[in-house]
Design a protein around this nucleic acid. Structure first.
Lengths: 345, 345
DNA sequence: CGAGCGCACGAGAGCGCTCTCACCACGCTG
DNA sequence: CAGCGTGGTGAGAGCGCTCTCGTGCGCTCG
């Protein structure tokens, strides 16, 4: 745990290269409008001195930080239960890194933290924020929106319906759900059940809507509420078997839930897919490929969602970006899903 | 994606409160040596103006950033496969938040990124770093160490054996492994196998050492190499059953691996724990409680490890901290493990 | 051949803060 | 009553950088 040595400044580089501070600054920032000879000289001095720009000094004048906050509300709930968030984070990280931006991670725990996050964002420490708002009633998104920080949301925020200035990236949950249910119907199944996700999340609500789109007058008893967890899936599957012993297909809100359902089905001696066909959602490989039988599921490209969030945000942040035409003001993106057929349906 | 409004400066607050900049600064930073009347007046002005200190300006002079980098090498490998890292991150986040430090997340992907991370850390953007070095041959830790940034490692780095200046937080992998194997022996098992983790990670190597400590002259065929994944666990378990059909107990390097092993055992008609007793490592609740039967495992407090890493780092960073006596120079910490008995052994 | 222009560079201000130091008004001691 | 702390406050320098502006130079063109 050694302390850092004093670092060379622009001044020092300038002195060594025999030019002015301004010229060094120009070179460091791209070198436009400087003669090649001088560029070379400055570069050499930079290398020899091991000069690294002081970001604080730079930010002070540019008012840019080249840093983006990633806000994750209430990690206890879901985030750390499945790799979903980790994958998005990875996508975000890749994109930010590619554009020399830093990722400041803000995990919030409970209401008190909201104020803290709000203060931090309003404090102008970062250029923008990527926000994962998991719950419909979460006050955080609005709070952030009001802080005036450019923001892209991960997943459609619950209250965004009529707000055109809200930018988010989401999967086509509803469409994917429709595909899944149609596929089950195409298999000749008629008693198709749905195990929902946590319905205070738009993704779960949208998937339920998709289910209903196809099953227009479905028996309401075919819908069992769960929470995206394996345990919830087990519980819901047991309910379902109780209420509707004749169920012949299940569309689960995600793979984890489907895995729980599969366990119950096996325990009750129902064969999958022969007696009951099962479809999940996410295509979380480690889960979907490991179930018995391997899970047919609706694939969404989670890492790509993260990457896209970051890309939209950075584009919105770019001062040089065109304010008109293609890709001007970023607008929300809904990514398509694809059905991945394995053996469970 | 609105832009931020111009924010009030210290100057503005000073003017409004009718004091000097210096006084406002003093109040904002604790208010020592300022009369209560003035403190009040300044506080009021701060509130009314919604003043938030400009961190860049502050860092420029203090040379502190109140930010810590969390470096995760090669996330593809393991990090995103199990919730292990997410839990540590949560612990880290809590501790950093409690001390008003920001968490800058650096995910590296391949060798090129190492240079980038090295440059970033050497660039003095953060006060310290928390590093997860997963592989024995990873050049990153040394690189960071040389960058002169105060660092605490998550897990014992492979090359740290003789370096006293390396600070890390780890679980007592070896001791935990010994406990597990002794427990199996105590159950009367004699053909106790071990499915290793990825042996290029110290945690896996240490657990193997612990196994060997107890099984001093174990049949080498009882050791099967895997990689901390469920699929690896399945593969290793199949090998084991092939090589030593008389195996009556398995100590798996982690819960995920154990879950894989359990699946194979069931498929082969071996009863657990009657025919084969199984113990995992981690006590990853969602995994260990969901297996069939629920998994006996070695518990390590992962979140606490993260919290501790952050605490050690911050303590080392604290200029006011005592340089002598208890808690002076932080030294590595090895956390104890506990055996959690469920039904698999 | 001189006026004009553009390009390359340097001078200098200033971003918002902290921190040292000088100052002043007390109250105390001798 | 002079002298001397002492504690509270303000003035001002300066952290390392960017960016605007002005200057000098070489070039073109009338």
């Amino acid at each position: 745990m050694t302390d850092t040595a004093p670092r060379p400044t622009l001044e020092a580089v300038a002195a060594r290269a025999g030019v002015s501070r301004a010229t060094v600054s120009r070179v460091v920032n791209g070198g436009d409008g400087v003669r090649d000879v001088l560029v070379e000289r400055v570069r050499k001095a930079v290398d020899e001195l091991g000069y690294v720009p002081n970001q604080a000094a730079r930010s002070l004048v540019t008012r840019r930080h080249d840093a983006v906050a990633v806000v994750v509300a209430e990690p206890e709930t879901r985030v750390f239960a499945d790799p979903f968030f980790a994958l998005q984070l990875r996508g975000i990280s890749k994109e930010l890194t590619a554009h020399d931006n830093q990722l400041v991670l803000l995990l919030t725990e409970g209401r008190d933290d909201h104020a803290r996050v709000g203060r931090y964002l309003a404090g102008g420490h970062v250029d923008g924020a990527l926000v994962f708002s998991l719950h419909l009633d979460d006050p955080l998104p609005e709070l952030i929106q009001r802080a005036g920080v450019p923001t892209v949301f991960g997943g459609r925020p619950g209250w965004s319906g009529d707000r055109r200035d809200v930018v988010y990236v989401d999967s086509d949950n509803r469409g994917g759900a429709r595909d899944a249910v149609r596929h089950l119907a195409g298999l000749g199944r008629t008693r198709i059940a749905h195990i929902t996700g946590a319905l205070d999340q738009t993704s779960a609500a949208d998937r339920l809507d998709g289910y209903r789109d196809v099953m227009v007058d479905a028996d309401p008893r075919l819908i069992a509420e769960a929470d995206f967890t394996p345990a919830g899936g087990e519980r819901a599957m047991r309910e379902l078997l109780e209420r509707c012993p004749d169920v012949d297909a299940v569309f689960a809100a995600n793979d984890l839930t489907a895995a729980g359902a599969l366990r119950v089905l096996r325990a009750r001696g129902r064969r999958v897919p022969d007696d009951v066909a099962v479809i999940g959602f996410d295509d979380m490989r480690p889960v979907a490929e490991q179930t018995d039988p391997p899970l047919t599921t609706v694939r969404q490209d989670i890492e790509e969602m993260g990457r896209l969030m970051a890309r939209l945000l950075l584009r919105g942040l770019d001062r040089d970006a065109p304010r008109e035409g293609v890709g001007a003001i970023p607008s929300s993106v809904v990514l398509p899903t694809t059905l991945v057929r394995r053996e469970s349906a």
